[in-house]
Amino acid sequence: MIRSQRPTPGKPPLSGKPKYSLRDTLLSYGFLAPALILLAVFTFYPLAYGSYLGFTEYGGARFGQGLPPKWTGLDNFRTLMADPLFLKSLLNSVKYLIIVPILQLASLAVAVLVNKNLPGMAFFRAAYYVPVVTSISLAAVMWDWVYNKDGTLNWALGAVHLVSKNQMFGWLNNEYTAFWAVMLVTFWRGFGYYMVLYLAGLQGIPAELEEAAVLDGASSWKRFWSITVPMMKPTILLCSLLSTIAALRVLEEVLVLTNGGPLNSTYTALMYVYSKAFQGFDFNYGLASAAGLVVAAVALLLSAVNFRLFRDSSGDGA
């Protein structure tokens, strides 16, 4: 901290009020100006204006005629609550949270598996990370082929006689499977990312602890649940938080794989926001912004719950 503060030459800094040099202040704001202007215009203004739009009627014909947004109070929220598609989207977004514990446990388990001094581990780590650096559009191209009616998934299932030829369907075209198929792609693109975060956390567990447990005859299953998981609680909390917010905000996977279909079965809350604002012909910015606000509120609420949950269950931990 001290290092970052340049004492004014000649005069030692007073203990009471800090003395600032005008030159340093002007220079600092000059250097900061590009970042501050960009953040103000493209991060903070959208937050404020977008929140305002949520309470207005805006978009479509109104926008085309150059009319300003019209204040309508809570009308948009009433419309949303009465729209079965929005309720379904919101429910789907919450349902998407199922991925959080699965993804986190799987990533932690994979991290434990590759965190060993055995030949080939660096290769496995790198290979697991490749989906993370793959564009969602490429993932869509590849997984669409995998999920196709004639694709590799059905071929593999057919080869082991789990599905017969006449029962096959496209996994993304079926209203009961599409949601889970989309989720699997999220999982595929995510587990390498969280694996790396967990690997960093695993370095912090003292080796003696593990060795002592081995000497006491604890099985690796037992060691995972009694040593690794409790010791990793801070990392698990961080990752679950990131993962929860990402799950609630899921949009790209849906957009590129199913566009919300079939029969709206994969509509998520942000997909709803996007489609109200930019798909179709109504360009309803007001309603879309209101829906965005509802998602933000739910995200905030769930982050708080997530935080509570972990803090309570790890009271004796860190």
């Binding site: 959208p46 937050l47 204006y49 926001v273 879309a288 912004s289």
Partner: peptide, 12 residues
Amino acid sequence: PSETTFIVNTLT
């Protein structure tokens, strides 16, 4: 929260 950012940014 950045849920509505993309809407306003296109307008901007």
